[in-house]
Design a protein around this nucleic acid. Structure first.
Lengths: 191, 191
DNA sequence: TTAAAAAAATAAGATATATTAAGAAATTGA
DNA sequence: TCAATTTCTTAATATATCTTATTTTTTTAA
């Protein structure tokens, strides 16, 4: 199992002994996925949190009218799940689908709970992870509310250039909350 | 200092000995604020996180064009700050203003860091707090992207009836990302 | 390599939401 | 209590964004 990325991700914030590292790794499972595969489907229960070793994933919600809204992208070194459903054992609100072939490490809710018991320091790690996720999400809310579509697009490609280059424009439009046609139009106007 | 609310808020998730409770309380400061006072102003550095004993606060961002976007409301038992600025010691992106007279307990960044050192269990508490905040924010993002204004309004008053009753309609409009005039119009159409 | 499928661009017409302006209602503060 | 201020409503016009349809370009898979 490819574990170097996840260990350095964690050891940015907490230190682990060799024994603890081994214990942690024993709770993980590796999974390899090809393009368009689903890691999670809306309505299913969501029992795992995923760490991305390589590749790109997209989490998106489909509403009653069939409209596709991108919740997040995840690339190398990101964690992804439907957090609300994962934590509260509820049916998922989102789909998670492979955009570019992935290697992920999955951690089940049960194993995460064990991990907190065995190595309480992981509370600190996930606190920091959740803090960062919350701050990112809040900044996105502010920008969604206060900026017009073109500026949201510009902020997105500035903040996530690697993602912007790797995913379809219509998926970026879906992240920004606009139609692909409109994104096309505002891009054309500004060249 | 009125400490019963904050202690029961914390002891929902972690247990504290009497000594630990006292130590924690020794790190807090009470503040009483009247309507329209600012707890934090955009551009200022944000050194505290606030727990609301009573009253209502509103966090909002003013963009370059002067448009007001409400980031969050906080009522009894909520925590509020500009989290990103608080954690990273950056100038605040938001204002926090009193909507209804408040009693708050403030905890400084320095004291929070001390607290993590002295009682590492607080990592668990803030992990859960941040998890909940992240999930709420993510749900809001999904709704902002996928629902039209009227449905976002209906969800808001359903989810936060006490807030909806206590704050100005134009502040709800600002939370929803629409103008007060438009909120008026869609409310009128649906009565 | 090529046919098929998917994505992107373009454009016309439709709709949701914003802007401006004015008057009515509610709240505030002296 | 009352004048002043703020908030809410209404309505006309303006604008951002969507919808639908078509064509072009790119990607995919056999």
């Amino acid at each position: 199992m490819k574990s170097d990325h996840i260990l350095s991700n964690i050891c940015q914030y907490i230190s682990l002994s060799p024994v603890e590292k081994d214990y942690f790794l024993s709770l993980l499972e590796e999974e390899n996925l090809s393009k368009k595969e689903f890691l999670l489907s809306q309505g299913e229960s969501c029992n795992h949190i995923y760490f991305v070793n390589s590749g790109i994933l997209r989490a998106f919600h489909i509403n009653q009218e069939g409209k596709d809204s991108t919740v997040m992208f995840a690339v190398k070194d990101w964690w992804i799940t439907d957090m609300h459903c994962f934590l509260n054992v509820l049916p998922s609100m989102v789909n998670i689908q492979v955009v570019a072939p992935c290697s992920v490490l999955k951690l089940s809710k049960n194993n995460l709970d064990k991990l907190y018991d065995e190595i309480p320091r992981f509370n600190k790690f996930f606190r920091i992870l959740m803090q960062n996720a919350y701050c990112r999400e809040q900044l996105r809310t502010i920008q969604n509310l206060s900026l017009p579509a073109l500026e949201r697009y510009e902020q997105f490609i500035k903040k996530y250039p690697h993602i912007a280059n790797a995913v379809a424009l219509k998926q970026i439009a879906s992240y920004l909350g606009i139609t692909p046609e409109f994104l096309s139009a505002i891009r054309a106007k500004n060249d």
